[in-house]
Structures are given as structure tokens and as C-alpha cells.
Simulated scan of single mutants.
Amino acid sequence: MFTIGCHLSASKGYTAMGKQALEIGANTFQFFTRNPRGGRAKPINEKDIKKFLELAELNGINIILAHAPYTLNACSADEKVREFAINTMEDDLKRMEYTPGNYYNFHPGSHVGQGVEIGIKYITEMLNKLLKPEQTTTVLLETMAGKGSEVGRSFEELKEILDKVELKDKMGVCLDTCHVYDAGYDIVNNLDGVLKEFDQMIGLDKLKAIHLNDSKNPFESHKDRHEKIGEGSLGMEAIERIINHSKLKTLPFFLETPNEIDGYEKEIQLLKGIYK
């Protein structure tokens, strides 16, 4: 089954997101747990959650992806920023258990001149503090484009984080097609080679989701600017190979392209048309 969705606004609740996803032909969706540039989250509406779970079961929405706010930086040089990251993720993981068995994605963060090793130390300390054996949520590290002092720009850096996490079964990776291409992994001309490298370094069993985005910038630019599907430096042929690759095609794909909801609907129909 082709599992495809896009980023939706959580402002009206889970049921509204589920209905909107179905209306545009999606069978999954991504959402921010709270304001992406802030810290507050709306209280959980248990009645809304119950209705959403019923809607999801009835319509085959089997997995959804929550995205942490951009302000969550677990490896900041500022202790207060790190405290915010810990408190935010702790709250988010509690909230995720209202919709059990789903994914929670976050950007590893920026070490802001402290160095990658210090950054990775802070990230893994946070994860080892927060992950619980009883949780049903899988936490995903997102592959990053490598701008500034971002951690997670290479498979090696992601592996180092995963290796240091104690509850390894609670962790996975979300591969962003724009980010990895911008970071220097040539998924246009050497998709098999990139996936082989990922498998050898991390293990394809840890790859849980794909952010499906084209890129406004050329290969290895380290810019992180998403483009609409088929309109960037990846191009339509590469996108078609990605969604139909035997090692990727059963994963959930999430669009983060620069679109309004009608644009997402068109892209979802386009991708369904080339999925084999």
C-alpha cells in the first residue's frame, strides 16, 4: 500500500486533520505538536482523540507523524534552551501516548560552535533521560542538510547518536530527500549506493519514514530549501525511483513541499499516478 500524506495544521484537532487528509486523497499526515516557533501546546481533547482513532481505524490511517517544534535544540550551548528541549519533548512524548504506536520526529539540533561530539553528548543524554520502556512511540532523528552547525548532517553522526541511546528499540530515522541531497548524498544518480551506505552505517530497519521533498538548491549545497515535487534539483525521475524503490516503497511518505492544501492534493494525486 502506498502510504502518502502531507503536513497539516493541528489547530482544529486530530479529527479535523484526519478528515482533511482523506479529502485530499492522503492516508497519513504530519503535524506540529505545538507552535513550531514557540513552546505552548493546546490541551489534549480526549473526545477529539477518540473520534480520530475511530476515523483512522475505519479509513486505514495506520500511522501518523508528529514533528517537534523547530525551537527544540537539545544540543544548544545555552542551558536554558536545552532545558526547554527536554521539557518540550517530555511533554510531547506523554501526549503522543494518546495516539499510541506512532512516530515523533525531531531535528537533532545545532551545536553552535561547541563541536559535534559535545552536541551528540547532549542529544543522547536527553534521549536517555526521556525514553521509557513502556512508551509506544518511536522517536525519529531527521537527516539534516548540514547548514551552519547542524548535527545529523551525515549517517555517521546519526549512527553515533543511535549507538549511545540505551533504549534502541524506541529510536529510528526519518530521511528527508531534500536534506540528504543537499548534504551530499546523491539520491538522484546513486540511490542504491546511498541506501547501501545507510544500511551499512545505521541499518535499513531503522529507517521508518520519508520526508518527500524536492530541493531548490543543487547537490551538496547545504541550504535546506524545499521545492515542489519535480520542480527542483532532484526532479521527477528521481522522485519516481525513490517512491518505487523496493527498500522504500512500503514506508510512509510525508510531503513538506511549499504548498497550500490544494497543492498538496495535486502532488498526492501525481505521486499516486506514478507509484507502482
Rank of each mutant, 00 (worst) to 15 (best):
E231V: 01
N62Q: 12
S221E: 00
A56P: 13
L53Y: 05
N217T: 05
V165S: 08
M126H: 15
G230C: 08
F31S: 02
N35Y: 11
P108N: 03
F198P: 07
K129C: 03
Y104F: 14
I274M: 08
M144T: 11
H179W: 00
L65M: 12
L140C: 05
V81I: 14
F52H: 04
I86A: 10
E134G: 02
M17D: 03
G109Y: 08
I63Y: 06
F2W: 05
A77N: 13
N128G: 08
E256N: 10
M126E: 05
K249M: 04
E134T: 02
L158G: 08
G263A: 00
C178I: 01
K168A: 14
G5P: 03
K94I: 11
I44F: 05
F32W: 10
D186S: 15
M1L: 11
P218R: 00
N35G: 10
E23C: 00
E97S: 12
H107S: 04
F84Q: 12
H222M: 01
N105F: 00
A16T: 13
M126V: 15
I268T: 05
G25L: 01
L140I: 02
I243V: 13
H67K: 09
L130N: 02
A183G: 08
T136M: 11
L191W: 08
K132P: 12
K164E: 15
G148K: 14
K42L: 08
L65E: 01
N62D: 14
V139D: 01
R37I: 10
E125T: 15
F2Q: 09
E237D: 13
K94M: 05
E157C: 13
K51V: 04
N35L: 14
K159E: 07
I161H: 10
I239N: 01
H7T: 04
I118Y: 11
K216F: 04
Q135N: 10
R40A: 12
G119R: 02
E83N: 13
A21Q: 01
S11L: 11
